[in-house]
Design a protein around this nucleic acid. Sequence first.
DNA 1: AATCAGATTGGCAGCGCTGCCAATGTCTGT
DNA 2: ACAGACATTGGCAGCGCTGCCAATCTGATT
Lengths: 342, 342
Amino acid sequence: MNVREPPPEPERRLVTLSDVAREAGVGESTVSRVLRNQGSFSKRTQDRVAEAVARLGYVPNRLAGMLAGSGTTAGAKLVGIIIPSLNNIVFPDLLRGANAALDRDGFQSVIGVSDYDPEREEALIGALLSWRPAGLIVTGLEHSAGAVARLRASGIRIVEMIDTDGAGLDIVVGFSNRAVGCDSARHLLARGYRRIGYVGHDIARDLRAAKRLAGFRETLALAGHPLAETEIAPGPSSAAAGRAALARLLVRRPDLDAIYFSNDDMALGGYFHCLAEGIAVPGRLALFGFNALDIAAAMPQPLTTIRTPRLEIGTAAAERLAADGPAETVDLGYELIAGATA
Amino acid sequence: MNVREPPPEPERRLVTLSDVAREAGVGESTVSRVLRNQGSFSKRTQDRVAEAVARLGYVPNRLAGMLAGSGTTAGAKLVGIIIPSLNNIVFPDLLRGANAALDRDGFQSVIGVSDYDPEREEALIGALLSWRPAGLIVTGLEHSAGAVARLRASGIRIVEMIDTDGAGLDIVVGFSNRAVGCDSARHLLARGYRRIGYVGHDIARDLRAAKRLAGFRETLALAGHPLAETEIAPGPSSAAAGRAALARLLVRRPDLDAIYFSNDDMALGGYFHCLAEGIAVPGRLALFGFNALDIAAAMPQPLTTIRTPRLEIGTAAAERLAADGPAETVDLGYELIAGATA
DNA sequence: AATCAGATTGGCAGCGCTGCCAATGTCTGT
DNA sequence: ACAGACATTGGCAGCGCTGCCAATCTGATT
């Protein structure tokens, strides 16, 4: 036997659909139909194609598929998602919800993280748009003028998640952060707290937190017990920031009897401060958070907080994108969790 | 004037590169070169193109670009990342690290979440491979046979993150979970703890936690103080699960003097249990975690735990993908944080 | 004024797949 | 046995962009 090694292929070309067609002894379009399980073909053809695919280890090239299919219905099975951060568990939750629904409808998602920076968001919108997605899911209602222009011009479905306080571009899914602030204030007032402070994180970046604070502040003022003092930690929210900020605040205002935190992370830090300093909660100082993290429920005294439907928001956003209903605002509400800290 | 509305364009075609070329009065390849800032062109041409792009609101189609450029160097500026979960802050941290480095090198990432399910991981590998990425970043060293076959067959760069205990396919970036377990055990032994228990979460799914436990258990046994008892919470790790599991464990073994937790979330729950039950930490019971979450440092008594270089792992993984060095294992180590709980 | 290297530029063939349409094959009923 | 209806199938023109190569233009040089 003349076993001469064939010259090593200079560059292993990837298996293409047309290789599969040849191997299976059928036409390209037939393979395409079988692979996408669309149109009609015989069982026999299907088997042959399946065999050829397995034998060749064929992996379809989605890039080519999407390009060819662009302009048509099935073309763009892709959506872009922009979230401000991955640090805060809130956003991964939104992603999980969205991904679950997206998967069901056969969509792939490409995500971008803006770091709470409007300019970066605008750049990301451009980048994601260049994937020619069927839709874009963004966070919040506030965007740079350029971002809005791009979103508008794209002509695709846009979903703005989380916040319903304002006008949306297309579909809006979330809850009213303002109302959360108001309800939080009402709860504290109802429990008899009167000298109330606020501990938050960098609010210039987190507009939703700012809206909650606005609602909170206004409700207190209306009730005749205006917000006594605020303390803003620089940087993103964290337990450490919350703990340090509460410590600073109490130095200035040791008379406060309740604290509204920008979120549970901050509140947890505040709680730790109280534990460390022997400040009785809620007897001496009440604590109120936001987001209902799992961890807040496991505390010795469950944190009083607001449960937000994060997964549901993600899911609803994805579903609204896929379906093509009218532009609308979907308010998924929230729930006040009366824990033991306020 | 015969102002007859032209028939409304039946379907607004998107602006393409060739529209830009016409508008700018230059050839397509020229526009392409200018847009990618590659090759040479005059300042004048550049301005004309820029103008035309702005006037038309042109957004390049990455799909087409990548398809056309496939096979060439600059072709695949894309990497796929597969992580097991978004719930655990560890993985978002890895993503952040990777994204930062990837952005710098002009790569886009497509991510997939496997939910700790090997089959789902295999399916995701297929899905991501169909984007024809330049490389794939996956989590851990254990994959289904099918997954390994696909990864091998793909011929692209593979990075396995987090775990270095075992053989990798190509590049491995992480630390030794086994060694973490050993060091954790040594620390507890050195501090004089002898009746040590373990509280973990569903270990069949989290293989890294299993490796830590194995190292931990072995070290204790070698020292003549074998692990006294374990309690495994069903489901994923969480503070609530940790709190409940520790409670159950202490009913069976009230004599234990130290607990090793599968991670900080669980440990935090354990700490809450101690606070709630008035169990002195570490006097009556010592607690040891894993991961060094921010929150663990903010506790009244900082948690004794292991700091893992999560961001660095993500960054290193991404860098190794982009560069094309040899297959290798990069051990980024870890650090024992001696807190106040053990 | 002729020459030549280098800077600019445009044309065009694909990249791998899908949509469209015409060409077969298959199975009824009459 | 034959038309008509439907099930299957293959060919081929793009989708929008990039790589390659040849054509043209620019100065500087001899």
